[in-house]
Amino acid sequence: MADAQGAQRRQSRIRDMLAGWRAHHGEVARNSFQRLLATPVSSAMTWLVIGIALALPASLYVGLINMQALGEAWDSTARLSLYLKMDVDDARGKALAEALRKDSELVAVQFTDRASALAEFRAISGFGDVLDGLDENPLPALITVEPVAGLSAEHLGQLQQRLSALPEVESAQLDLEWVQRLYALVKLGQRLAITLAALLALGVILVIGNTIRLAIESRRDEIVVIKLVGGTDAFVRRPFLYTGLWYGVGGGLCAWLVVAISLWVMSGPVARLAGLYGSEFSLDGLGLVATLLLWLSGGLLGLAGAWLAVARHLGDIEPK
């Protein structure tokens, strides 16, 4: 009976301790945020520095996903244009088209005879008068084929070679070279973004570390007193870690704002450009996951910077 009561008392004491610990964390978090707000200009400058540093790789990331989206939009409609030799008549061209429809690597085949090609060219180009002056139709017949989706660039190249080797075909053109170049560029951009992100992350850690170092210096007396009356290292560290966290999270928010504003500024011109190409393309934003990731990485970098400063400088401050 007495044991049970003792256990109960012990349990409630642990509960009290936990509640006190939680309350203390909440209080320290609030308190360190209020300290940042008490010096709004210098805090805002730090937030902005971190924000810009994080916004650079974030914008590069947004640019890359948009380029990739652009590439994929074209990739899915990769086409080969087979220009037939001039001596191949329409009947033979149609027969070839029929044969190609049975090809397992092609999903769509469209035959355009020489007369239709001329009519189409006349309608689109506006060179009607010039064409009227010619004695005969200068345009070859054309078979447009669409390969099955998901072929690699290499595979597409092989397909192009096979088709251009057909006796009726003068040349086979793959409308894909620029997509390949775009992919190579995106790959390069990704490397660049990762390198830049790593460098700037280091920069953010150092900026926050230095800011926290100054905060530690300005609260030296308080640290000494806390150590004198029995504060643990964790207790002394806590407010500075929260300060670092708030710097990082605030910087993440700034970065998000910078990216959002840049996108908004660019969306008008991009829509006009896409309109000129007859495309529905519009800029993708950061998205929810990337936004959360930006905040999270801001917060983590802030914590890391604070840890660095705290580990280096708190040990030096001992009561004398």
């Binding site: 009290d16 301790m17 509640a19 006190g20 309350a23 806390i226 009356v229 029995g230 504060g231």
Partner: peptide, 11 residues
């Protein structure tokens, strides 16, 4: 209050 806060005393 500082020593009490440090030792995790209930509010």
């Amino acid at each position: 209050a500082l020593p009490l806060i440090i030792s995790g005393c209930p509010h």
